[in-house]
Design a protein around this nucleic acid. Structure first.
Lengths: 219, 219
DNA sequence: CGGCTCCTTGAGGTTAATCAATCCTGGTGG
DNA sequence: CCACCAGGATTGATTAACCTCAAGGAGCCG
Protein backbone atom coordinates (compact mmCIF):
# COMPACT_ATOMS: atom_id res chain seq x y z
CA UNK A 1 0.00 0.00 0.00
CA UNK A 2 1.24 3.46 0.79
CA UNK A 3 4.19 2.19 2.79
CA UNK A 4 5.35 0.01 -0.07
CA UNK A 5 5.06 2.84 -2.57
CA UNK A 6 7.07 5.10 -0.29
CA UNK A 7 9.81 2.55 0.18
CA UNK A 8 10.32 2.27 -3.54
CA UNK A 9 10.44 6.01 -4.19
CA UNK A 10 13.98 7.27 -4.66
CA UNK A 11 13.12 10.19 -2.43
CA UNK A 12 12.61 8.00 0.58
CA UNK A 13 14.98 5.20 -0.27
CA UNK A 14 17.30 5.63 2.70
CA UNK A 15 14.75 6.31 5.40
CA UNK A 16 14.23 3.69 8.09
CA UNK A 17 10.97 1.98 8.85
CA UNK A 18 9.92 4.44 11.55
CA UNK A 19 10.27 7.46 9.30
CA UNK A 20 8.43 5.74 6.50
CA UNK A 21 5.63 4.97 8.89
CA UNK A 22 5.34 8.58 9.97
CA UNK A 23 5.30 9.67 6.34
CA UNK A 24 2.58 7.21 5.49
CA UNK A 25 0.62 8.66 8.37
CA UNK A 26 0.28 12.06 6.71
CA UNK A 27 0.16 10.83 3.12
CA UNK A 28 -2.88 10.06 1.07
CA UNK A 29 -3.11 7.73 -1.90
CA UNK A 30 -4.97 8.95 -4.98
CA UNK A 31 -6.10 7.40 -8.23
CA UNK A 32 -6.95 9.79 -11.01
CA UNK A 33 -8.12 9.13 -14.56
CA UNK A 34 -6.38 10.63 -17.59
CA UNK A 35 -6.88 14.31 -18.38
CA UNK A 36 -7.67 15.36 -14.83
CA UNK A 37 -6.43 18.67 -13.45
CA UNK A 38 -4.67 18.22 -10.09
CA UNK A 39 -4.11 21.87 -9.26
CA UNK A 40 -4.04 25.20 -11.04
CA UNK A 41 -1.70 28.14 -11.08
CA UNK A 42 -2.52 30.58 -8.31
CA UNK A 43 -4.46 28.18 -6.11
CA UNK A 44 -3.42 27.95 -2.45
CA UNK A 45 -0.74 25.25 -2.29
CA UNK A 46 -2.01 22.86 0.30
CA UNK A 47 -0.20 19.71 -0.84
CA UNK A 48 2.51 18.36 -3.08
CA UNK A 49 2.71 15.04 -4.88
CA UNK A 50 4.71 11.93 -5.59
CA UNK A 51 3.84 10.20 -8.84
CA UNK A 52 3.76 6.43 -8.38
CA UNK A 53 2.47 5.40 -11.76
CA UNK A 54 1.30 7.15 -14.92
CA UNK A 55 2.28 10.44 -16.46
CA UNK A 56 1.62 14.05 -15.41
CA UNK A 57 2.41 17.29 -17.14
CA UNK A 58 3.33 20.56 -15.45
CA UNK A 59 2.52 23.59 -17.57
CA UNK A 60 1.68 27.25 -17.63
CA UNK A 61 -1.09 28.91 -19.55
CA UNK A 62 0.09 31.70 -21.82
CA UNK A 63 -2.17 34.69 -22.08
CA UNK A 64 -3.17 33.81 -25.65
CA UNK A 65 -4.45 30.36 -24.77
CA UNK A 66 -1.35 28.42 -25.77
CA UNK A 67 0.18 26.26 -23.08
CA UNK A 68 3.84 26.03 -22.15
CA UNK A 69 4.79 22.59 -20.87
CA UNK A 70 7.47 22.91 -18.21
CA UNK A 71 8.10 19.22 -17.69
CA UNK A 72 6.61 15.78 -17.85
CA UNK A 73 6.71 13.99 -14.51
CA UNK A 74 7.54 10.33 -14.54
CA UNK A 75 6.93 7.61 -11.96
CA UNK A 76 9.08 8.03 -8.86
CA UNK A 77 9.38 11.79 -9.23
CA UNK A 78 7.79 14.48 -7.11
CA UNK A 79 6.17 17.65 -8.26
CA UNK A 80 4.93 20.89 -6.75
CA UNK A 81 7.56 20.62 -4.02
CA UNK A 82 7.88 24.36 -4.12
CA UNK A 83 4.58 24.81 -2.29
CA UNK A 84 6.42 23.70 0.81
CA UNK A 85 7.70 27.26 0.85
CA UNK A 86 5.28 29.21 -1.31
CA UNK A 87 1.62 29.59 -0.59
CA UNK A 88 0.43 29.34 -4.20
CA UNK A 89 1.02 26.84 -6.97
CA UNK A 90 3.23 28.47 -9.59
CA UNK A 91 1.96 26.25 -12.45
CA UNK A 92 -0.85 23.95 -13.52
CA UNK A 93 -0.76 20.19 -13.52
CA UNK A 94 -2.80 17.62 -15.32
CA UNK A 95 -2.69 13.85 -15.72
CA UNK A 96 -1.86 12.57 -19.19
CA UNK A 97 -2.75 8.98 -18.40
CA UNK A 98 -4.52 7.20 -15.55
CA UNK A 99 -2.36 7.89 -12.52
CA UNK A 100 -1.56 6.66 -9.08
CA UNK A 101 -0.30 9.42 -6.80
CA UNK A 102 0.60 10.09 -3.22
CA UNK A 103 -0.38 13.44 -1.82
CA UNK A 104 1.42 15.10 1.10
CA UNK A 105 -0.21 18.02 2.90
CA UNK A 106 2.41 20.76 3.18
CA UNK A 107 1.70 21.54 6.82
CA UNK A 108 2.28 18.01 8.02
CA UNK A 109 5.30 17.52 5.84
CA UNK A 110 6.99 20.69 7.00
CA UNK A 111 6.79 19.47 10.58
CA UNK A 112 8.30 16.14 9.65
CA UNK A 113 11.17 17.91 7.93
CA UNK A 114 12.22 19.70 11.08
CA UNK A 115 12.14 16.52 13.10
CA UNK A 116 13.86 14.28 10.55
CA UNK A 117 17.03 15.65 9.01
CA UNK A 118 17.53 12.64 6.81
CA UNK A 119 14.21 13.32 5.17
CA UNK A 120 15.17 16.93 4.59
CA UNK A 121 18.47 15.94 3.03
CA UNK A 122 16.69 13.42 0.87
CA UNK A 123 14.28 16.07 -0.33
CA UNK A 124 17.16 18.44 -0.96
CA UNK A 125 18.72 15.87 -3.19
CA UNK A 126 15.51 15.62 -5.21
CA UNK A 127 15.29 19.38 -5.48
CA UNK A 128 18.86 19.55 -6.67
CA UNK A 129 18.00 17.01 -9.31
CA UNK A 130 15.03 19.10 -10.38
CA UNK A 131 17.19 22.20 -10.58
CA UNK A 132 19.62 20.44 -12.90
CA UNK A 133 16.74 19.25 -15.05
CA UNK A 134 15.30 22.74 -15.33
CA UNK A 135 18.74 24.06 -16.20
CA UNK A 136 18.78 21.64 -19.09
CA UNK A 137 15.35 22.76 -20.23
CA UNK A 138 16.48 26.37 -20.34
CA UNK A 139 19.54 25.40 -22.32
CA UNK A 140 17.48 23.27 -24.70
CA UNK A 141 15.04 26.01 -25.53
CA UNK A 142 17.88 28.02 -27.00
CA UNK A 143 18.55 25.24 -29.49
CA UNK A 144 16.66 24.71 -32.74
CA UNK A 145 13.75 22.30 -32.75
CA UNK A 146 15.68 19.49 -34.39
CA UNK A 147 18.28 19.54 -31.60
CA UNK A 148 15.57 19.47 -28.94
CA UNK A 149 13.89 16.54 -30.60
CA UNK A 150 17.16 14.69 -31.00
CA UNK A 151 17.92 15.18 -27.30
CA UNK A 152 14.50 14.00 -26.36
CA UNK A 153 14.84 10.82 -28.40
CA UNK A 154 18.28 10.13 -27.00
CA UNK A 155 16.98 10.61 -23.48
CA UNK A 156 14.11 8.27 -24.18
CA UNK A 157 16.47 5.57 -25.36
CA UNK A 158 18.62 5.95 -22.27
CA UNK A 159 15.59 5.51 -20.06
CA UNK A 160 14.13 2.58 -21.89
CA UNK A 161 17.53 1.03 -22.46
CA UNK A 162 18.14 0.22 -26.10
CA UNK A 163 17.59 1.88 -29.45
CA UNK A 164 14.04 0.67 -29.95
CA UNK A 165 11.59 2.78 -27.97
CA UNK A 166 8.02 3.89 -27.78
CA UNK A 167 6.78 7.44 -27.41
CA UNK A 168 5.15 7.96 -24.01
CA UNK A 169 2.66 10.60 -25.21
CA UNK A 170 0.71 11.73 -28.22
CA UNK A 171 2.64 13.75 -30.78
CA UNK A 172 0.56 16.73 -29.86
CA UNK A 173 1.75 16.56 -26.24
CA UNK A 174 5.28 15.88 -27.37
CA UNK A 175 5.24 18.99 -29.51
CA UNK A 176 4.13 21.04 -26.51
CA UNK A 177 6.82 19.43 -24.35
CA UNK A 178 9.43 20.41 -26.97
CA UNK A 179 8.11 23.96 -27.12
CA UNK A 180 6.85 23.72 -30.67
CA UNK A 181 3.68 22.83 -32.62
CA UNK A 182 2.54 19.49 -34.07
CA UNK A 183 3.18 20.60 -37.67
CA UNK A 184 6.81 21.35 -37.00
CA UNK A 185 7.30 18.14 -35.04
CA UNK A 186 5.84 16.15 -37.89
CA UNK A 187 8.13 17.78 -40.43
CA UNK A 188 11.20 17.40 -38.25
CA UNK A 189 10.52 13.72 -37.66
CA UNK A 190 10.06 13.33 -41.37
CA UNK A 191 13.42 14.95 -41.97
CA UNK A 192 15.02 12.53 -39.51
CA UNK A 193 13.44 9.62 -41.32
CA UNK A 194 14.58 10.75 -44.74
CA UNK A 195 18.12 11.30 -43.43
CA UNK A 196 18.18 7.76 -42.13
CA UNK A 197 18.51 8.82 -38.49
CA UNK A 198 15.49 6.95 -37.20
CA UNK A 199 12.77 4.62 -38.33
CA UNK A 200 9.29 5.44 -37.16
CA UNK A 201 6.11 3.44 -37.13
CA UNK A 202 3.21 4.98 -35.24
CA UNK A 203 4.40 5.44 -31.71
CA UNK A 204 7.33 3.07 -31.97
CA UNK A 205 10.66 4.23 -33.22
CA UNK A 206 14.15 2.93 -33.64
CA UNK A 207 17.38 4.87 -33.72
CA UNK A 208 19.36 3.87 -36.80
CA UNK A 209 22.32 6.23 -36.56
CA UNK A 210 23.04 7.19 -32.97
CA UNK A 211 26.21 9.10 -33.86
CA UNK A 212 24.50 11.33 -36.36
CA UNK A 213 21.58 11.86 -33.99
CA UNK A 214 24.00 12.86 -31.25
CA UNK A 215 25.50 15.32 -33.68
CA UNK A 216 22.15 16.91 -34.48
CA UNK A 217 21.53 17.25 -30.73
CA UNK A 218 24.48 19.65 -30.55
CA UNK A 219 22.71 22.16 -32.81
CA UNK B 1 33.38 39.41 8.62
CA UNK B 2 32.09 36.04 7.55
CA UNK B 3 29.74 35.76 10.49
CA UNK B 4 28.17 39.11 9.67
CA UNK B 5 27.72 38.22 6.02
CA UNK B 6 26.08 34.95 6.97
CA UNK B 7 23.69 36.62 9.38
CA UNK B 8 22.43 38.93 6.66
CA UNK B 9 21.92 36.22 4.05
CA UNK B 10 18.28 35.23 3.70
CA UNK B 11 19.38 31.62 3.64
CA UNK B 12 20.67 31.74 7.17
CA UNK B 13 18.34 34.36 8.57
CA UNK B 14 16.68 32.20 11.17
CA UNK B 15 19.67 30.25 12.40
CA UNK B 16 20.91 30.89 15.92
CA UNK B 17 24.39 32.06 16.84
CA UNK B 18 25.79 28.59 17.37
CA UNK B 19 24.79 27.37 13.95
CA UNK B 20 26.12 30.49 12.30
CA UNK B 21 29.39 29.92 14.08
CA UNK B 22 29.64 26.38 12.82
CA UNK B 23 28.86 27.54 9.32
CA UNK B 24 31.51 30.21 9.48
CA UNK B 25 33.91 27.49 10.54
CA UNK B 26 33.68 25.68 7.23
CA UNK B 27 33.12 28.73 5.04
CA UNK B 28 35.72 30.72 3.21
CA UNK B 29 35.49 34.34 2.11
CA UNK B 30 36.59 35.18 -1.43
CA UNK B 31 37.14 38.36 -3.38
CA UNK B 32 37.23 38.02 -7.14
CA UNK B 33 37.69 40.65 -9.84
CA UNK B 34 35.28 41.02 -12.74
CA UNK B 35 35.36 38.45 -15.57
CA UNK B 36 36.78 35.64 -13.48
CA UNK B 37 35.65 32.07 -13.99
CA UNK B 38 34.65 30.43 -10.69
CA UNK B 39 34.02 26.93 -11.96
CA UNK B 40 33.38 25.19 -15.26
CA UNK B 41 30.91 22.65 -16.47
CA UNK B 42 32.10 19.12 -15.81
CA UNK B 43 34.59 19.99 -13.09
CA UNK B 44 34.34 18.03 -9.83
CA UNK B 45 31.94 20.00 -7.64
CA UNK B 46 33.85 20.58 -4.46
CA UNK B 47 32.07 23.70 -3.23
CA UNK B 48 29.06 25.92 -3.68
CA UNK B 49 28.70 29.64 -3.21
CA UNK B 50 26.82 32.49 -1.60
CA UNK B 51 27.12 35.80 -3.40
CA UNK B 52 27.55 38.64 -0.93
CA UNK B 53 28.20 41.47 -3.33
CA UNK B 54 28.57 41.89 -7.07
CA UNK B 55 27.07 39.99 -9.97
CA UNK B 56 27.69 36.49 -11.29
CA UNK B 57 26.36 34.72 -14.34
CA UNK B 58 25.59 31.02 -14.65
CA UNK B 59 25.74 29.78 -18.21
CA UNK B 60 26.30 26.85 -20.50
CA UNK B 61 28.51 26.75 -23.53
CA UNK B 62 26.72 25.65 -26.67
CA UNK B 63 28.69 23.46 -29.01
CA UNK B 64 28.99 26.24 -31.58
CA UNK B 65 30.64 28.67 -29.20
CA UNK B 66 27.55 30.66 -28.29
CA UNK B 67 26.73 30.83 -24.61
CA UNK B 68 23.35 30.27 -23.00
CA UNK B 69 22.93 32.32 -19.84
CA UNK B 70 20.82 30.39 -17.34
CA UNK B 71 20.56 33.10 -14.71
CA UNK B 72 22.20 36.12 -13.20
CA UNK B 73 22.91 35.70 -9.51
CA UNK B 74 22.34 38.68 -7.27
CA UNK B 75 23.65 39.49 -3.80
CA UNK B 76 22.14 37.28 -1.12
CA UNK B 77 21.53 34.38 -3.48
CA UNK B 78 23.33 31.06 -3.62
CA UNK B 79 24.47 29.20 -6.66
CA UNK B 80 25.77 25.75 -7.56
CA UNK B 81 23.78 24.26 -4.67
CA UNK B 82 23.20 21.23 -6.81
CA UNK B 83 26.77 20.03 -6.29
CA UNK B 84 25.69 19.09 -2.80
CA UNK B 85 24.20 16.05 -4.51
CA UNK B 86 26.00 15.82 -7.83
CA UNK B 87 29.68 15.31 -8.24
CA UNK B 88 30.14 17.63 -11.22
CA UNK B 89 29.17 21.22 -11.89
CA UNK B 90 26.36 21.23 -14.45
CA UNK B 91 27.15 24.74 -15.74
CA UNK B 92 29.83 27.41 -15.88
CA UNK B 93 29.99 30.50 -13.74
CA UNK B 94 31.79 33.77 -14.15
CA UNK B 95 31.85 37.08 -12.31
CA UNK B 96 30.40 40.03 -14.20
CA UNK B 97 31.68 42.60 -11.71
CA UNK B 98 34.09 42.58 -8.80
CA UNK B 99 32.57 40.16 -6.32
CA UNK B 100 32.57 39.18 -2.70
CA UNK B 101 31.63 35.55 -2.19
CA UNK B 102 31.45 32.91 0.48
CA UNK B 103 32.47 29.42 -0.48
CA UNK B 104 31.19 26.29 1.27
CA UNK B 105 32.96 22.96 0.72
CA UNK B 106 30.28 20.40 -0.06
CA UNK B 107 31.65 17.74 2.24
CA UNK B 108 31.58 19.93 5.32
CA UNK B 109 28.21 21.39 4.47
CA UNK B 110 26.57 18.03 3.96
CA UNK B 111 27.58 17.01 7.45
CA UNK B 112 26.14 20.19 8.91
CA UNK B 113 22.87 19.54 7.12
CA UNK B 114 22.37 16.22 8.82
CA UNK B 115 23.05 17.69 12.23
CA UNK B 116 20.99 20.85 11.81
CA UNK B 117 17.51 20.41 10.43
CA UNK B 118 16.76 24.11 10.49
CA UNK B 119 19.64 24.69 8.13
CA UNK B 120 18.34 21.99 5.81
CA UNK B 121 14.87 23.48 5.79
CA UNK B 122 16.33 26.88 5.13
CA UNK B 123 18.26 25.54 2.19
CA UNK B 124 15.18 23.76 0.93
CA UNK B 125 13.36 27.03 0.91
CA UNK B 126 16.09 28.57 -1.22
CA UNK B 127 16.01 25.65 -3.61
CA UNK B 128 12.25 25.95 -3.93
CA UNK B 129 12.72 29.59 -4.79
CA UNK B 130 15.26 28.64 -7.43
CA UNK B 131 12.90 26.07 -8.89
CA UNK B 132 10.17 28.67 -9.26
CA UNK B 133 12.62 31.04 -10.90
CA UNK B 134 13.75 28.41 -13.39
CA UNK B 135 10.12 27.60 -14.14
CA UNK B 136 9.66 31.21 -15.08
CA UNK B 137 12.70 31.13 -17.33
CA UNK B 138 11.34 28.14 -19.22
CA UNK B 139 8.02 29.87 -19.65
CA UNK B 140 9.70 33.08 -20.78
CA UNK B 141 11.75 31.42 -23.47
CA UNK B 142 8.54 30.40 -25.20
CA UNK B 143 7.56 34.05 -25.52
CA UNK B 144 8.82 36.43 -28.21
CA UNK B 145 11.82 38.60 -27.46
CA UNK B 146 9.77 41.72 -26.83
CA UNK B 147 7.79 39.97 -24.10
CA UNK B 148 10.96 38.71 -22.45
CA UNK B 149 12.47 42.17 -22.50
CA UNK B 150 9.29 43.72 -21.13
CA UNK B 151 9.26 41.21 -18.27
CA UNK B 152 12.87 41.88 -17.53
CA UNK B 153 12.33 45.61 -17.34
CA UNK B 154 9.27 45.21 -15.14
CA UNK B 155 11.21 42.92 -12.83
CA UNK B 156 14.02 45.42 -12.66
CA UNK B 157 11.65 48.19 -11.64
CA UNK B 158 10.14 46.02 -8.93
CA UNK B 159 13.56 45.32 -7.50
CA UNK B 160 14.83 48.86 -7.64
CA UNK B 161 11.45 50.24 -6.57
CA UNK B 162 10.18 52.89 -8.93
CA UNK B 163 9.97 53.40 -12.66
CA UNK B 164 13.42 54.92 -13.09
CA UNK B 165 16.07 52.21 -13.15
CA UNK B 166 19.56 51.42 -14.32
CA UNK B 167 20.61 48.33 -16.24
CA UNK B 168 22.86 46.13 -14.12
CA UNK B 169 24.88 44.76 -17.04
CA UNK B 170 26.11 45.63 -20.49
CA UNK B 171 23.60 45.27 -23.28
CA UNK B 172 25.63 42.41 -24.63
CA UNK B 173 25.21 40.46 -21.38
CA UNK B 174 21.57 41.43 -21.21
CA UNK B 175 20.99 40.05 -24.69
CA UNK B 176 22.55 36.74 -23.64
CA UNK B 177 20.45 36.71 -20.47
CA UNK B 178 17.32 37.18 -22.61
CA UNK B 179 18.37 34.43 -24.97
CA UNK B 180 18.91 36.69 -27.95
CA UNK B 181 21.68 38.68 -29.66
CA UNK B 182 22.71 42.32 -29.19
CA UNK B 183 21.31 43.36 -32.58
CA UNK B 184 17.82 42.17 -31.74
CA UNK B 185 17.95 43.72 -28.28
CA UNK B 186 18.96 47.03 -29.76
CA UNK B 187 16.12 46.97 -32.26
CA UNK B 188 13.55 45.87 -29.69
CA UNK B 189 14.55 48.63 -27.29
CA UNK B 190 14.31 51.05 -30.15
CA UNK B 191 10.80 49.83 -30.87
CA UNK B 192 9.85 50.37 -27.22
CA UNK B 193 11.21 53.90 -27.38
CA UNK B 194 9.36 54.78 -30.55
CA UNK B 195 6.13 53.39 -29.10
CA UNK B 196 6.52 55.60 -26.05
CA UNK B 197 6.85 52.67 -23.65
CA UNK B 198 10.19 53.68 -22.16
CA UNK B 199 12.76 56.39 -22.30
CA UNK B 200 16.34 55.28 -22.50
CA UNK B 201 19.58 57.10 -21.98
CA UNK B 202 22.70 54.96 -21.90
CA UNK B 203 22.22 52.52 -19.08
CA UNK B 204 19.44 54.46 -17.37
CA UNK B 205 15.86 54.01 -18.38
CA UNK B 206 12.44 55.11 -17.30
CA UNK B 207 9.13 53.35 -17.81
CA UNK B 208 6.66 55.77 -19.37
CA UNK B 209 3.67 53.50 -19.90
CA UNK B 210 3.61 50.67 -17.38
CA UNK B 211 0.21 49.38 -18.56
CA UNK B 212 1.26 49.03 -22.15
CA UNK B 213 4.57 47.45 -21.09
CA UNK B 214 2.68 44.95 -18.98
CA UNK B 215 0.58 44.17 -22.01
CA UNK B 216 3.61 43.51 -24.20
CA UNK B 217 4.94 41.19 -21.49
CA UNK B 218 1.93 38.90 -22.09
CA UNK B 219 3.03 38.28 -25.68
C1' DC C 1 46.21 59.24 -32.76
C1' DG C 2 45.47 54.24 -33.51
C1' DG C 3 43.34 50.17 -31.80
C1' DC C 4 40.06 48.28 -28.93
C1' DT C 5 35.17 46.82 -27.78
C1' DC C 6 30.50 47.82 -27.51
C1' DC C 7 26.47 49.43 -29.60
C1' DT C 8 23.69 50.49 -33.45
C1' DT C 9 21.78 50.21 -38.17
C1' DG C 10 20.92 47.98 -42.60
C1' DA C 11 20.09 44.06 -45.89
C1' DG C 12 19.31 39.26 -46.58
C1' DG C 13 18.42 34.56 -45.28
C1' DT C 14 16.63 30.86 -42.33
C1' DT C 15 13.73 28.85 -38.99
C1' DA C 16 9.57 27.90 -37.43
C1' DA C 17 4.67 29.59 -36.55
C1' DT C 18 0.33 30.16 -38.89
C1' DC C 19 -3.41 29.10 -41.92
C1' DA C 20 -5.74 25.75 -44.55
C1' DA C 21 -6.66 21.22 -46.52
C1' DT C 22 -6.48 16.45 -46.44
C1' DC C 23 -5.68 12.00 -44.54
C1' DC C 24 -5.97 8.66 -40.99
C1' DT C 25 -7.76 6.05 -37.09
C1' DG C 26 -10.57 4.69 -33.37
C1' DG C 27 -14.95 4.88 -31.58
C1' DT C 28 -20.13 5.01 -32.09
C1' DG C 29 -24.53 3.94 -33.51
C1' DG C 30 -27.37 2.16 -36.90
C1' DC D 1 -20.44 -4.95 -40.57
C1' DC D 2 -20.33 -0.58 -42.20
C1' DA D 3 -21.17 4.47 -42.47
C1' DC D 4 -19.98 8.23 -40.05
C1' DC D 5 -17.77 11.46 -37.13
C1' DA D 6 -14.10 13.78 -34.23
C1' DG D 7 -9.45 14.42 -33.10
C1' DG D 8 -5.04 13.65 -34.20
C1' DA D 9 -1.53 13.63 -37.68
C1' DT D 10 0.31 15.01 -41.96
C1' DT D 11 1.31 18.09 -45.96
C1' DG D 12 1.50 22.42 -48.45
C1' DA D 13 1.74 27.55 -48.92
C1' DT D 14 2.42 31.79 -46.68
C1' DT D 15 4.10 34.93 -43.22
C1' DA D 16 6.54 36.71 -39.42
C1' DA D 17 10.29 36.65 -36.09
C1' DC D 18 14.78 36.69 -35.46
C1' DC D 19 19.58 35.39 -36.55
C1' DT D 20 23.57 36.34 -39.52
C1' DC D 21 26.64 39.07 -41.91
C1' DA D 22 28.45 43.45 -42.83
C1' DA D 23 29.41 48.19 -41.99
C1' DG D 24 29.62 52.43 -39.42
C1' DG D 25 29.76 55.27 -35.09
C1' DA D 26 30.85 56.22 -30.20
C1' DG D 27 33.46 55.80 -26.16
C1' DC D 28 37.88 54.30 -23.92
C1' DC D 29 42.63 53.40 -22.99
C1' DG D 30 47.22 52.65 -24.60
Amino acid sequence: MIVDDLKHAPLFGDLDGDDIGRLAGVAQRLLRPADTALFSQGQPGEAFYLLVDGSVKIFKRLRDGRTATIRHVRPGEMFAESVLFHDRYPSNSQTLTDCELIKFPTEDFRNLLLAHPKLAVSLLSQMAHLAVLLNQRVEELLLPVQARLARYLIGLCDDQGGHRCTLPTSKKELAARLGTVPETLSRTLDRFKRSGLVRLDGEHFEVLDADKLEHVAQL
